[in-house]
């Protein structure tokens, strides 16, 4: 792991002047990932989404490394092509340097529309690190539900109304879907845990083959909280067990942080207005309990995996 002093000496990959929202989790995520990768020569592919749009408005770009945007659903395929070109040119002696390849996609570009492209790239074994910045909905188009949106969260296409209390389904577990590809390194981390995040990115970049890190990335606009609370929300997601920090290294599970005592999920929910309807006008105990139970179930399963697959 690198200290903050060491990191502060590194050349970052993304600079100021981008147009992500004030307090944007993706801005923090991208800076930390690129600092973690700062000791390497990297090439980045980015899926359509907030990060892509807000950082590359013509004729400006916040990226200080070679960077390509192709479309929404194909960041993994695009980086496959870049990496293969590198492999071919390197084999022919046309390029000498050692390069690393990174792809960024939001949850929409990863869990939903880009899932096939990601799966294909993972199966083919390209040497790249895929970063999913998961902000739990289509934020770039104006907060529509994705398969990463948690149950009962209100979005513009899963609003709460007289008869429906926000999104009706639990979220998809993409980290486990990726892990099922038996790639060498899979991890979950969160904005709010720079050390965990940077350590995982640095670790992943040392591994050959496909790597995947799913980063919990709070969105002040879509989750409806004050912009200064971004880190706090990331921390509450982890402290409540809603978003476990863990990694799967060559099939072995390791939970990187186990809260002494998990906080009730309510603490995570009630500071985000997307869950307002669970508390107002009256408290919907059953629904909150359902979310709580689901966390317990997920956590128990994860602990079992850690125990059995170690």
């Amino acid at each position: 792991m690198s200290s903050l002093k060491e990191l502060s000496q590194r050349k970052g990959g993304i600079t100021s002047g981008h147009r992500l929202c004030s307090g944007c989790g993706a801005g923090i995520m991208a800076r930390q990932v690129m600092l973690a990768a700062g000791n390497y020569k990297v090439v980045v592919a980015c899926a359509t989404g907030c990060l892509e749009v807000a950082t590359t408005i013509y004729p400006y770009s916040a990226w200080k490394v070679p960077w390509i945007h192709n479309a929404f659903e194909n960041a993994a395929a695009t980086i496959s092509g870049v990496e293969t070109a590198y492999k071919s040119l390197k084999k022919q002696g046309k390029i000498k340097k050692d390069l690393k390849f990174l792809a960024f996609g939001g949850d929409g570009g990863t869990y939903d529309i880009g899932l096939q492209s990601l799966s294909g790239a993972l199966e083919r074994g390209h040497d790249f690190l895929y970063i999913c910045y998961d902000n739990e909905a289509y934020m770039n188009t104006g907060i529509q539900r994705s398969s990463a949106t948690p149950k009962y969260a209100a979005t513009t296409t899963s609003p709460y109304g007289e008869v429906i209390s926000g999104k009706r389904e639990f979220r998809k577990n993409i980290t486990e879907i990726v892990a099922a590809h038996n790639i060498p390194y899979v991890a979950q981390t969160a904005v709010g845990y720079w050390n965990d995040l940077v350590t995982k990115v640095e670790k992943a970049l040392e591994v050959k083959g496909p790597k995947f890190i799913n980063i919990f990335t709070p969105c002040q606009l879509g989750w409806k909280y004050g912009p200064e609370k971004t880190l706090e929300i990331g921390k509450l997601a982890v402290e409540t067990g809603f978003w476990p920090l863990y990694e799967v290294e060559n099939g072995k599970y390791k939970i990187n942080y186990k809260p002494q005592e998990k906080k009730p999920v309510e603490e995570f929910l009630k500071i985000q207005k997307r869950f307002n309807h669970l508390f107002k006008p009256e408290r919907k105990e059953k629904l909150i309990q359902e979310i709580q139970d689901n966390i317990e179930k997920g956590w128990t399963e994860l602990e079992k995996k850690e125990k059995c697959l170690n």
Binding site: S16, G17, I57, Y60, S61, V65
Partner: peptide, 18 residues
Amino acid sequence: ASRVEEGSSKNFKTGSWR
């Protein structure tokens, strides 16, 4: 290919958002 130069967003000041 409408390429954009690296780090050029430094020319776009966002301080006025504050």
